[in-house]
Structures are given as C-alpha cells and as structure tokens.
Design a protein around this nucleic acid. Structure first.
Lengths: 300, 300
DNA sequence: GAAATAAAATGATATAAATTCATTTATCTA
DNA sequence: TAGATAAATGAATTTATATCATTTTATTTC
C-alpha cells in the first residue's frame, strides 16, 4: 500500500536532491527513508529511482509517484491545518483565488466586513495557480474563485457579483481627457502600461485593440498598481483599469478616465465555487456580502 | 499525521454505516478501527463521529475527512494499479473520457489501431463524471477528454481533431428526405428521439430548435443508439446524429439524413489533456492517430 | 420492563512494522 | 590514491498496530 510517508519522502528527495538532506527535514535518519522506499519497491516490484553517481534520479515510476505526491500532499496538509484550527474553535477557512488583478481593491472592501461578521473563519487570498483558477477550485487549493471568466460546467457554479466598466486611465492633462470616448486607432500612438499577464488575457487587447488590429506604440509591464498609476500621472503612458477603481484613486493621483470605444468595455465579475460546497454557510455568506458591497459600489 | 488507513476507515464506515462491517471489508477487527481513529482524534483533539444509537454519525470534522477521503483515495488506488501494471511490463494506461454520445463509434475506430500500435498501454473509456469531463481531467480520473466544448484555460489544452455535421436522421420514406434542408418550424410536428441528456446539451436544441423557440411534438428518451435507429427506421420518430455516423449505418438501417437549417449544424470534436501531460508519448500518439483517422473519415 | 441482541469502546497482550546504529559499497574530489 | 560524501544493507531496538477478551451503551423483543 502506498503510504503518505512514501509520498513525503519522494517529494522531499525531489526538492532536496539528496536523501540525507531529505531525512533531516523529515526528522528521520537516512536509512529510514532507504528502508521505507525499498519496501514500497518490493511491494510493487518496481524501481523508484536509480543512483546516478552520488545522487538519485527518478525512474518513470518514481516520477509518477512524484506527481501523485505533489497533487495529494497539499490537500492532506490543508486538511491537517483545517482540523487543528477546528480544534481551536475556528470553524473553517476560506481560501479565495483571484483572477482579476485590479479587483484586489474591491476584494479588500468585501473581506474587511466579512472578517468582522465571521470571526471564526480564516481568510487567505491566493493569486498564482499552477493549473489556473478553475484547476485550483477543482483541486481544492481554493474554495472561492473571483474571475471575469465563468465556466458553466458540471461540478462548479458561478454567480455574477459585480458589473463595472473597464476604462482607459490617462494623466489629467492628456488630450484624450475631453473626449467622450476613444477609438482603437488612437491607441497606436500611446504607451500602454499593464500587469505582467499574457496580452490575450488583458481586456483592452482582447476586446478593443486586437479586434481592430491595433497595437500600442509601446507596451510596458509593471507589477504594482500604485507604480502604474504614478507612471500614468507623470505622462509615461496610459493603462486600462476598472472605472470605479479610477474614481477611488482620483484623490491620490492626478488622473482621468476615458471610455474605450463608443460603447465602452463592460465587464462582469463572477464568484465560482464547487457545487458540493454550495450549502456551506460561511461560503454563502461571502457571496451574499460580495453582492451587497458591489451594489453600493455601482450606485455611488 | 493523517494516514491513508484513516481515510480508508472513514470512507468504509460511511459506505457500510457500521464499523464492524467496515472492519470486515478492510480485513481488520473492529477494535483495530476504533483504536486507529481514536489515535487520530487525540492527535488533533477533535471528534470524528458520535454514536447515534447503535451506529455512528460523522461530525463536521468527520465529514471534512470523508470528503478528503473520497477525493484522494481514488487517485492513490489508481496509482497503485498503475504501478502494478508497470511492473507487469505494461507501460502506462490511458483513461479516455467521452462527452459526446454518438462519437463512441468514431472512438472505436481510433482505439482499435491504437491498441495494436501501443500494446503496452491499457485503454479504458469512461462516460459518467461526478464533476463533468473537465473536472475529471483536473482530478486525474481520466487522461484524455473527448468533447465538443473545449476550455481554453490554464492547465489544460485542447486540440481539434474532427469536424463533422450534425444532421437529422429520418426513415427512408419520410417526406423530409427529398428536401435540401429543413427549417426549425418543420420539427414542430415530429417526434424527436435522443439520448438521456439535458436538452441544453443536445445540439439540435441549443443550435437549432431553441433559437427559433420551437419544440418537437414529442421527445422520447432512449439509451442505445441501435434502438434509436430501429425506432427511426420504423417511423416512430427522428433523431439527430453526426452525418458520418448515418452514412456508416445506411447498410444496417433503412434511413436517410437531412441538413438542419440552411447552413447545417457544424460540429468540432476536441481532445483535451492536462498541460503537464503534454510530453507523454503514448498520449501524443493517441491525439495524432485521432487526427489521422478523422481525416480519412471526412474525406471519404 | 427485563432479557437478549448488537454495536462500539476500552485495556492488556502479542504481533508486526518502522527506526536507528553500525557498517559496507560506490562515487566523487583534491 | 586517500579522504570525503552519499546511499544501501543488516541486526537490534523501539514504536506502533492488531488482536483477544471484556465492558459499556443502546436497541429490540417478548
């Protein structure tokens, strides 16, 4: 029988590239690992690694087990954590996945009252996923996914929580400022600043520039929203952000917003959860609260 | 530490609703299970179940572990199987998921030469998924998904393998037979026969009837393709199937096909795999073979 | 409502497994 | 080639697990 310890050993040896080192972090001795894996090998009549010089190299069977370990151990470890918290009186934990960079500010506005309403729930926000947000939901890496791209498929369910318009952000003295909207062609002479995401995942490309076959003069990549806004403020380029977000930051930065195209870019934010979690109270409460906060957002 | 055996015990008790019964199937005694779980409870300072009358009832913590067990054990068990086969000289296994009922015939045409080309690979075909085909891919329940609905998201990749037209199948003496195509309204007086799938997943509804707000006179549900075709042959109704499939079965059944709408219903079949599996040779070979077979299909 | 039945919990003992220590084998390095 | 580093092996010890016998608790049944 494959045991958790086997998977832990395999994962750790892959990480450390050495059995002796792995033994140390697992609080065991090197022969313990050696015997343990030997037993597994004999049970299935396979080899898990070969000695390549001083060190070990996984066989295909070993790689298979490594992939199993990387898939399964995080789930076990999360459950162990969860049970510990449960014993401490905490009643659950909410792992939120975000697939929408600038919506972080919106999320903060939801989380703050949520933490007050649900003192027993631990909240964690993740933004990087090996297999994408949908994969993270399926794999139980997160419990809630916030995304503009819902997936209406068996096993998950998505609810719209927030409508907003994606607009172009320009410095206060920019000629675009007085226009009711800009055309795609007008972007050809601008420097566009964005988050480090593939262009086909940026709305300003997929819903505005690409359909008109236009590219900006230059495309700069910056990670932090604050730095992006400072750059815009200083005339170093323009960027695309949610309208409400620009409004919220007009006090901090000398910026203005312009509609993208005659009808603007309308966006919808969704919250996705696993169908099997639909009945969990503190999850339902988060979705309800999101909608409430978003409503006050869009009407102000 | 949570152990595999804990999860097995919890799953088995949930299944059998009795510890004594669970002990029997696990080839252990009842006190063994009791002690084992007691140890886990003490480790985390939780309760996993409560005695309700003679039997046990899971606490929320127990339910959490049950959900973990149902998620993880199938993966472990698959790996154990996989390793056993690996030892026997089999080099891998290919679990195919199908989200397209009538494509089964097409699949058979691909699998047959594949088995000859890759004698070391075990092939299995699954058609029911708790969390949908996409979920099954993410959860490692299957390795390949055959579906008309690709999902262009991180973690998975889809490739088109086959184009075909979905047509209406009618008996040889049906008045539609001589028409170049039929309009949606003409379906209002027909009996439609289909597989037992929600109507919004049937192309004839989603791409033909529903947009024109038409319903057939009657909708009969039948599981087996052969029976459906016999019914059609005998004038009991009409059905929608891939064009190539109708052509293949004209010898066996006295049927004919008619285009659905002026431009017909064009369908594309995709094969989806996990990105992390992209380099696996016997998987790539399956996709390549699918395309090759499909090509000879569409050109004959 | 007492006796019989059924199921799970408990405790002591026996059994089995995992871990360590001491040592060997193999490889690399200076 | 000596010295150092890493993994494998074997025997002994420690630790964990399973069983048996028994008790506790609840449910039938008469």
């Amino acid at each position: 029988m494959i045991e958790i310890i086997h998977l832990k050993i395999i994962r750790e040896i892959d990480k450390q590239k050495s059995m002796t080192a792995a033994a140390k972090t697992l609080c065991l001795t090197q022969p313990a690992l050696s015997h343990s894996i030997k037993k597994l090998e004999q049970m299935f009549n396979i080899h898990i690694w070969e000695k390549k010089g001083r060190y070990l190299e996984f066989t295909p069977a070993g790689q298979h087990l490594l992939s199993l370990a990387n898939r399964i151990l995080p789930q076990i470890e999360y459950s162990e954590d969860y049970l510990k918290k449960y014993a401490h009186g905490d009643m659950g934990s909410l792992r939120i996945g975000m697939e929408c960079h600038p919506c972080y500010q919106w999320l903060l506005k939801v989380i703050s009252p949520y933490l007050k309403e649900w003192p027993g729930i631990d909240v964690d926000v993740k933004q990087k996923f090996k297999f994408g947000g949908i994969g993270a939901l399926f794999n139980y890496e997160i419990d809630i996914l916030i995304t503009p791209d819902p997936l209406l498929k068996a096993g998950l369910c998505f609810e719209p929580v927030f409508n907003y318009e994606q607009v172009l952000v320009v410095p206060h003295n920019h000629p675009f400022r007085s226009l009711p909207y800009i055309k795609a062609s007008q972007m050809a002479s601008e420097t566009l600043i964005s988050y480090p995401v593939e262009t086909n995942r940026l709305d300003i490309y997929s819903m505005f520039l690409t359909p008109h076959n236009i590219s900006p003069k230059q495309h700069k990549i910056i990670e932090s929203t604050d730095i992006i806004l400072q750059m815009v403020e200083n005339g170093r380029g323009v960027t695309a952000l949610p309208h409400w977000f620009v409004e919220e930051n007009k006090k901090r930065f000398n910026i203005a917003s312009v509609r993208l195209g005659k009808h603007g870019i309308a966006k919808k934010l969704f919250i996705g959860i696993r169908k099997s979690d639909q009945q969990i109270k503190y999850l339902k409460a988060f979705i309800a609260l999101s909608k409430k906060i978003s409503f006050s957002f869009s009407t102000k």
